[in-house]
Lab assay of single mutants.
Amino acid sequence: GKELVLALYDYQEKSPREVTMKKGDILTLLNSTNKDWWKVEVKATANDKTYERQGFVPAAYVKKL
């Protein structure tokens, strides 16, 4: 199945390749080969529509579930 990670801290994206997350968010882990930056998929809701974004977050800010 898919691997999930838990956001340990809030993170505000600093570039278009990154994604914003809030502490407590559960994210889908896409790639953890880089030890510093993990690629995740974030589900977000805006205007009653759910959309998914993929991007990088600092590996130290998340932990595998």
Rank of each mutant, 00 (worst) to 15 (best):
Y61E: 01
V40S: 00
I26S: 02
E3W: 12
E13G: 15
V19P: 00
Y11I: 00
L30N: 01
M21N: 00
L30V: 10
W37F: 05
M21L: 07
E41F: 06
K23P: 03
D48K: 09
M21F: 10
K64I: 14
T20C: 06
P16S: 11
K2P: 12
G55Y: 04
N31E: 14
I26W: 05
L65R: 03
K14H: 08
Y9T: 07
W38Q: 00
A7S: 05
D10R: 03
V62F: 05
F56A: 01
L29Q: 00
T50A: 10
K43W: 13
S15A: 08
M21V: 09
S15R: 09
E3T: 14
K43F: 13
Y61V: 05
G24H: 04
Q12I: 14
K14D: 05
L27E: 00
V42S: 12
K63Q: 13
D48F: 09
K35E: 09
V19T: 05
E18L: 05
E13M: 12
A46V: 15
E3Y: 12
K35Q: 09
V5I: 07
D48V: 06
D36H: 14
T33E: 14
F56N: 03
N34L: 08
F56Q: 03
Y51R: 09
V42P: 06
V42N: 07
N34W: 06
E3H: 12
D10F: 04
D25Q: 14
A44S: 12
L8V: 06
P58C: 06
T20H: 04
Q54L: 06
V40R: 00
D10K: 03
S32T: 09
W37D: 00
F56V: 06
A59D: 02
Y61H: 06
K43Q: 13
Y61G: 05
F56R: 01
A7Y: 01
M21D: 00
R17Y: 13
D10M: 03
L8D: 01
V57N: 01
N31D: 15
N31R: 06
S32A: 13
A7N: 02
P16C: 10
K39T: 06
K35G: 08
T45V: 13
G24Y: 05
D25H: 05
P16I: 10
Y61C: 15
G24K: 02
Y61A: 10
K63V: 15
V57P: 00
W38L: 03
A60Y: 08
K35I: 10
T50C: 15
W38C: 05
V57E: 01
E52T: 15
K23H: 05
D10Q: 03
L65V: 11
K35L: 08
T50R: 09
Q54V: 13
F56L: 08
R17L: 13
G24D: 04
V5L: 10
E41Y: 08
L4N: 05
R17Q: 09
K22P: 00
Y11W: 10
P16D: 10
L65A: 04
Q12C: 13
K63F: 09
T33H: 10
A7H: 01
P16G: 08
T50P: 11
K35N: 10
A59P: 04
K2R: 14
K23G: 05
E41C: 14
L27Q: 00
K14C: 12
A46L: 15
G24E: 02
V19I: 14
D36E: 11
I26D: 01
N31T: 07
Y11C: 04
D25G: 03
T50H: 10
K14S: 09
P16Q: 09
R53S: 05
T28Y: 12
T50W: 10
P16M: 09
Y9E: 08
D48R: 08
D10A: 07
K2L: 11
T28P: 15
Y51T: 11
T28D: 04
D48G: 15
L30Y: 04
E52S: 15
K23L: 04
A46Q: 14
L29K: 00
V40L: 04
R53T: 06
E52V: 15
K64H: 08
E41R: 10
E18F: 06
